[in-house]
Design a binder for these strands. Structure first.
Lengths: 227, 227
DNA sequence: GACGAACTGAACTATTCGGTTTACTTAAAT
DNA sequence: ATTTAAGTAAACCGAATAGTTCAGTTCGTC
């Protein structure tokens, strides 16, 4: 099974050194021309086989690069893995920035958001990323944090920001906005996520998806609707 | 870190051969006296280190058994792992059978159920089991199914059965009872589960737990309460 | 107490894998 | 054209691991 994956987004200017201001020097860190190849190859293999399952030889082969070159960029497998995972988390965060049309009716906006969440959860990439992060969160604590903040937290914050607007507008009445946002994202996953993650189903019937989304929106409005 | 674990429950009569009636022959399969030791040792090590991380030597040592004995019971590591995981799923399922007091007010019953769900999710054992099953669901498809059915499905069914009673009684109005049950269990986990699974927190502040449970019950009743 | 099955411990095989080294080639910049 | 940094292919190393084997020990049972 090949890893479905959107075309690689470049994030060259996102890299700030040591939390300081962006360095004007363009690419100083990447000591060679095949840096991206290595990262891309590693991404494919790690996502396919996990950390333990992936062999460095496989990665080098997939990257079209010699093992020596790979090790000239990264001191060891761990670091390579962390770098790949971090890059993927960043990409994931960037992609979550799809716009929301504030002016549409609340129910419609929520349904759309739910669709997006479920689309990601159903995607090959989403599932593999989730699996990998859960499996390695203990060995790589920073990976767990990274994924949590660039995934669940990112989405919750976006929804919370939207909800805040609707409350201001008087469309909804919510006291604990963060909790409400979390509740909504949870409702979207009802059962579907478990079935995917545990391999009981590899994709969801549109009928089931619609049922869950409908249920989520209805429940959310029943609780927080200004009526 | 040692694996917190309730005392081993025996499940001798639960084993039905090939779906047929229970065989009267007591223990024919276990060819020796140290069978349980092996299973227990394997359980500890697999739960601590995962499938790849666990070495057979470690397991044998933990079980207080020679490697030869171990291999006299199980043809290979895979099968041993599957047997351990199946046994744990069964144990998990049995333990979920705690009784619910039907006569108590709905809000109270739901809150109690939520507490139980969260207690399991927060437990060392619950987290390790979840992690292990997610990580290995692809390599061991049957493990994924087993866990799904003895965990999430089991709980959903129990809640659904209770909800059906409350509907009959006129306390709640629910059309899709299975969906409602799934929604409730999802609501219980809001954010807490993610934080645990990704290692952002190793346990939850009681204050946060109360907030989530309250939120879940309130939302559920807002949607399905007969009022 | 003797017999047979279960068990031991340790050595052994064969393989895999992370990481290094070496001798050589390519590409690009001055 | 020369020099230098980057890359290659392959052999190599040490450690770890799954699984096997076997001569000898323990234990329950008759």
């Amino acid at each position: 099974m090949t890893v479905a994956c959107p075309p690689r987004a470049d994030w060259p200017m996102l890299v700030a050194q040591n939390g300081g201001p962006m360095t004007a020097v363009p690419q100083d860190i990447r000591k060679g021309r095949k840096f991206d190849q290595v990262l891309a190859g590693a991404r494919d293999i790690f996502l396919r086989d996990g950390f333990d399952g992936a062999s460095v030889d496989d990665i080098a082969r997939a990257a079209g690069v010699s093992k020596a070159t790979l090790y000239s960029y990264f001191p060891d497998k761990r670091l390579l893995f962390l770098e790949v995972a971090k890059a993927e988390c960043r990409r994931q965060a960037d992609e979550a920035e799809a716009l929301i049309d504030d002016s549409a009716p609340v129910a419609q906006v929520l349904a759309l958001a739910a669709e997006r969440i479920l689309a990601f959860a159903q995607s090959e990439f989403g599932q593999r990323m989730f699996r990998m992060c859960v499996a390695e969160a203990e060995r790589f604590p920073t990976l767990g944090h990274e994924f949590y903040h660039s995934g669940p937290v990112m989405i919750r914050d976006r929804i919370a920001r939207y909800l805040a607007k609707t409350v201001e507008r008087g469309d909804l009445r919510i006291d604990d906005i963060n909790l409400a946002a979390d509740q909504f994202t949870q409702l979207c996953k009802a059962d579907l996520h478990d079935r995917l993650i545990f391999g009981v189903a590899d994709c969801c019937a549109p009928r089931d998806v619609a049922r869950v989304i409908d249920g989520a929106v209805t429940m959310f409005l029943a609780r927080y609707g200004a009526r």
